[in-house]
Design a binder for these strands. Structure first.
Length: 223
DNA sequence: AGCCAGGACTGAG
DNA sequence: CTCAGTCATGGC
């Protein structure tokens, strides 16, 4: 797919964002279970709504392994309602839990299995697609996989890698992983920085003069 | 008051 | 294999 002329180099962009925003130490949840739940609930949904759902679960004491497994559908549904698509997400969450249940979240298996093997297992769960699987692998199990999301696609597309807007998930992921060292901490920061930049500077109105990516980043284009 | 958000799956052509 | 339709709430 790439390399074409004048494509943004991932390591440069990430380094620039890192220099500007500093390390994010970003973590989409307090616990492994919370991260996994959040990964499902955030599918095509803004994090604000997911937070409401997570808060409900916490308040009901359902962010605990045993309690979550034992919770009736109705209780779970009410908790996750604010995150939208609650019927679908309830099923997907259940199926993911069903896959994890025989082992438990802290089973050695999840830290010893080769990443691609674990990734394949997650992808085999109905309702777990590539982005959800990668989020879980990276943030719950500390595996070095690059998370491709709408933010990364939009940002790099605007910076010159226009092919990313329509390319398949695998191609985009492979591009980033070929351009960057295979490193958990790096991928963690990269995703966090891209999200932060996308929500902050790139949405600033009027145009944000402090944008670390100026003049490359054409502020004002759609989102 | 629409429009859209950190996807994934299904059925049709 | 490509792609529109489907699922749904809350914030702006």
């Amino acid at each position: 797919m790439p390399p074409s002329p004048a494509e943004p180099a991932p390591q440069e962009i990430i380094a620039t964002l890192l220099a500007h925003y500093g390390p994010q130490h970003w973590w989409p949840g307090e616990t492994r279970l919370e991260i996994i739940v959040g990964a499902v609930l955030t599918q095509n949904t803004n994090w604000r709504n997911v937070s409401l759902a997570i808060a409900n679960l916490r308040q009901q004491g359902l962010l605990a392994w045993e309690a979550l497994l034992a919770a009736p559908d109705e209780a779970l549904r009410e908790c996750i309602r604010p995150s939208g698509f609650y019927n679908v997400k309830l099923r997907r969450l259940r199926q993911l839990l069903a896959y994890l249940e025989p082992f438990g979240l802290d089973h050695a298996r999840f830290s010893h299995l080769p990443m691609h093997a674990l990734r394949a297992e997650l992808l085999a769960v109905h309702g777990i697609g590539p982005e959800t699987a990668d989020s879980i692998l990276l943030y719950a199990f500390q595996r070095p996989t690059f998370v491709v999301d709408a933010f990364a696609r939009r940002l790099f597309s605007r910076l010159g890698a226009t092919w990313m807007a329509r390319a398949g998930y695998a191609a985009v992921r492979a591009h980033f992983m070929a351009a960057l060292p295979i490193d958990v901490a790096l991928y963690n920061e990269a995703h966090a920085l891209i999200v932060r930049h996308s929500k902050e500077s790139c949405r600033a109105r009027p145009l944000c003069d402090a944008c670390p990516l100026l003049p490359r980043c054409p502020h004002g284009q759609n989102t």
